[in-house]
Simulated assay, not measured.
Amino acid sequence: MGMTAWPFGDPTVLLAALALDLVLGDPPNRWHPVAAMGKLIQLLWRIAPTRGRVQPFLAGLAVVVFGMVLCVGVGVGISFLRQSWPVVGIAAEVLLLKTTFSVRGLCSAGRQVRSRLKDGDLEAARRLLAWHLVSRDTHALNESQVAAATIESIAENASDSIVAPWLFFLLAGLPGAAAYRFANTADAMLGYRDAAREWLGKCPARFDDLLNLIPARVTACLLIAATPLAGGSIRQGFRIWRRDARLTVSPNAGHPMAAAAGSLGIELEKVGHYRLGKGLHLPAAADVGRAIRLVGIVVGFWAAGMGVWLVVRVVG
């Protein structure tokens, strides 16, 4: 078939991994490579120095470099396994690539919150939001704020948990996708500004920011492009994206979130931090469903694009 060889990712593997994700979802934590990454980060965190600034900073750098190199090594090993035992190698590549992203899991988490909001069970919606999607305190959020936080998380995770690992896979194969997932996991665990992680988390946070510079902006463009199929306005999506993307502390998170706010015609506010789409209507449970549909359309764009690419390669 003349497919592109390693180090570039094979679109057939990505399509197979996407199909596996949509049918089966995520494996149990005890079998999940990302859970293993988390355990490794936790172990390194426990033995990392905590005094001063320089030593914790260097320890954080070591965590990221060690973990990413380890993931690259595993990815390279599987890529070479594919050359010797194609069927085994491809199966392993599909299985491991699937664990670097989660379409079904993200949409399912959003639907659970939406369902509780529609039923009027605000307390359950708050619990599910905190359990699946955000790290902020949710106990005092009202219905609109829960909906907003859910949509923000769906939009941000469309970049972190879908578009970014896919881009890194297509550009650098399984080693690239696995290394990205480790860096993103390290940031999620260490990239906080509390006393225990202020300096330890500096490097993980900056690595993650750097790796997501392009994926976050690509995701914003894709969300806006998908807007007409979700009943929104491309013009408004683009306007709010350009106006509000830099209102968040993160250099990346604001891009997909602002694009989603404008595309869906809603205001997304994290009280005391940012207000995206100011002046648009406050979100409700139905808007969570629209955000999930928007992400589903983006995934459909990717699948269709890869399908066309494969047909062209086969015919050519």
Results as ranks from 00 to 15, higher is better:
residue 114 R to I: 10
residue 91 A to S: 14
residue 116 R to F: 15
residue 176 G to Y: 02
residue 134 V to D: 07
residue 157 N to K: 08
residue 129 L to T: 09
residue 64 V to N: 09
residue 92 A to Y: 00
residue 142 N to I: 02
residue 88 V to S: 08
residue 141 L to W: 06
residue 60 G to L: 13
residue 161 S to Q: 10
residue 102 S to L: 08
residue 162 I to C: 05
residue 63 V to G: 05
residue 136 R to M: 09
residue 82 R to V: 02
residue 133 L to H: 03
residue 122 L to M: 11
residue 42 Q to E: 14
residue 46 R to S: 15
residue 106 L to C: 10
residue 175 P to S: 03
residue 109 A to D: 03
residue 122 L to D: 12
residue 81 L to Y: 09
residue 74 V to F: 14
residue 154 I to V: 14
residue 142 N to P: 04
residue 72 V to C: 11
residue 91 A to F: 07
residue 147 A to V: 03
residue 102 S to K: 00
residue 106 L to W: 08
residue 86 P to H: 04
residue 127 R to L: 14
residue 89 G to M: 01
residue 77 G to V: 04
residue 113 V to R: 11
residue 143 E to M: 02
residue 175 P to L: 11
residue 65 V to Q: 10
residue 46 R to V: 13
residue 74 V to Q: 12
residue 147 A to S: 08
residue 91 A to W: 11
residue 141 L to R: 03
residue 168 F to Y: 15
residue 147 A to T: 05
residue 108 S to Y: 03
residue 139 H to D: 13
residue 108 S to H: 04
residue 74 V to H: 06
residue 70 L to D: 03
residue 124 A to T: 14
residue 96 L to E: 05
residue 107 C to I: 09
residue 112 Q to S: 08
residue 151 I to S: 01
residue 91 A to E: 07
residue 161 S to Y: 10
residue 117 L to N: 14
residue 108 S to C: 05
residue 122 L to P: 13
residue 59 A to R: 01
residue 54 V to C: 01
residue 95 L to R: 11
residue 147 A to L: 09
residue 140 A to H: 12
residue 121 D to I: 14
residue 111 R to V: 02
residue 129 L to F: 06
residue 61 L to G: 07
residue 97 L to R: 04
residue 177 A to W: 02
residue 46 R to H: 07
residue 69 V to Y: 08
residue 65 V to G: 04
residue 52 G to L: 01
residue 152 E to D: 07
residue 70 L to K: 09
residue 59 A to F: 10
residue 138 T to K: 05
residue 126 R to C: 08
residue 77 G to N: 00
residue 101 F to V: 12
residue 140 A to L: 11
residue 135 S to T: 13
residue 43 L to G: 13
residue 165 P to F: 07
residue 53 R to Y: 01
residue 133 L to F: 01
residue 55 Q to D: 01
residue 174 L to G: 01
residue 114 R to S: 09
residue 131 W to E: 15
residue 152 E to F: 05
residue 146 V to R: 12
residue 106 L to E: 07
residue 108 S to G: 07
residue 79 S to R: 00
residue 73 G to K: 02
residue 103 V to A: 14
residue 140 A to E: 08
residue 52 G to I: 09
residue 52 G to M: 08
residue 120 G to C: 10
residue 130 A to R: 14
residue 142 N to Y: 02
residue 127 R to K: 14
residue 96 L to R: 05
residue 168 F to S: 04
residue 46 R to P: 06
residue 141 L to K: 06
residue 127 R to E: 13
residue 149 A to E: 05
residue 134 V to S: 07
residue 71 C to N: 01
residue 89 G to A: 11
residue 177 A to M: 09
residue 101 F to Q: 12
residue 100 T to Y: 04
residue 149 A to D: 12
residue 96 L to P: 07
residue 87 V to S: 03
residue 43 L to V: 02
residue 90 I to L: 03
residue 122 L to Q: 13
residue 156 E to I: 10
residue 125 A to T: 11
residue 129 L to E: 09
residue 155 A to V: 03
residue 119 D to Q: 15
residue 63 V to Q: 05
